[in-house]
Computed example of a mutant assay.
Amino acid sequence: MFQSSNALIRNVHSQVADRVGISIVRGDVGAGETLPSEMQICEMMDVSRTVVREVIRTLTGKGLVESRPKSGTRVRPPQKWNQLDPDVLRWRLETADMDDYLAKLFQLRCAVEPAAAALAASRAGEEDIALIRTGYEGMAAAKLDEQFVAADIIFHQAIYFATGNEFFWPIAQMFDITLRQSFTIAARGSHRTRALVEHHAVLEAIATGNAEGARAATNVLLKNSADDLVRIRGREFAVRPKG
């Protein structure tokens, strides 16, 4: 019923981190520029110096800022940020132009996902294949758009995990934040029957160890997904895969 003092502190910390983080990601404070002093932030946000210092440590850990004696806390270039950090992803999503965001997301998926599917076909174990199949079956059984989106995310995450390569896993982990937006848009279309056929082709290629088949099926799935989003949003935005 009542929050503990520690929970309240965490809530305040999260709120302040969100406000400062979003302002940095949005470009209100540019790379190389100095944040307001601790005391100024305390006054602007009506929080304690302890909270501000913890927020600065958090943002430092995410690569957004760096603190140096006598020179204050400066914003680092975006190339130095941990772009796969869940909070940074969320702040990006909240401040981005949606079409630009979708274009960048598809550029990443087109570059990586066919290779991940091919690798999964070579390395996936029974549990990996079962999880991919669970995602597919959830999509097939979904009655609501939200159910379809949740199952679609499970399907694609499971492919990245099935690679057995831990360097692919952060991409899978970011999908719950980043793909939910594009999948939610796409779920409003009338293409679900075709999408199920395409997902099944990817599943079967991975399950039978057909690496090149998995790569080709994923390319088809991504190309048609991009076409669906272009049609739904009414404009060109994404770099499509070849093939």
Rank of each mutant, 00 (worst) to 15 (best):
W81E: 02
V202Q: 03
T60C: 05
L64C: 03
I159M: 08
A158D: 04
I132H: 06
F237M: 15
Y101R: 11
I132N: 04
A207G: 05
L144P: 00
I177A: 02
M44H: 06
P170N: 01
E54H: 10
V55C: 05
R57H: 10
D176W: 03
P114Q: 04
N6Q: 14
R233P: 13
L89V: 05
L229P: 09
P69D: 02
V149I: 12
V47N: 07
R240V: 11
G72K: 11
T50P: 00
I132C: 03
H200F: 03
R57C: 02
E198Q: 15
Q107E: 01
G135T: 05
R240T: 10
E126P: 13
R90W: 12
Q3K: 15
I24M: 07
L196R: 04
A187M: 09
S4P: 11
R57E: 10
M174A: 15
G72I: 03
E38Q: 13
A7S: 14
A216V: 12
I159D: 02
W91I: 00
E33K: 13
Y136L: 15
R231Q: 14
N224F: 09
S182W: 13
R231T: 11
N224D: 07
D227P: 01
E236G: 04
L108W: 07
I185Y: 09
E236A: 10
F161E: 08
R68Q: 10
G21D: 09
G189K: 01
I177G: 01
V20N: 07
E126Q: 14
P69S: 09
R26N: 09
A150E: 13
G72N: 09
V52N: 12
P170K: 04
D46V: 02
S48I: 04
L84T: 11
D145N: 12
D97Q: 14
T50E: 04
E166C: 06
M174S: 15
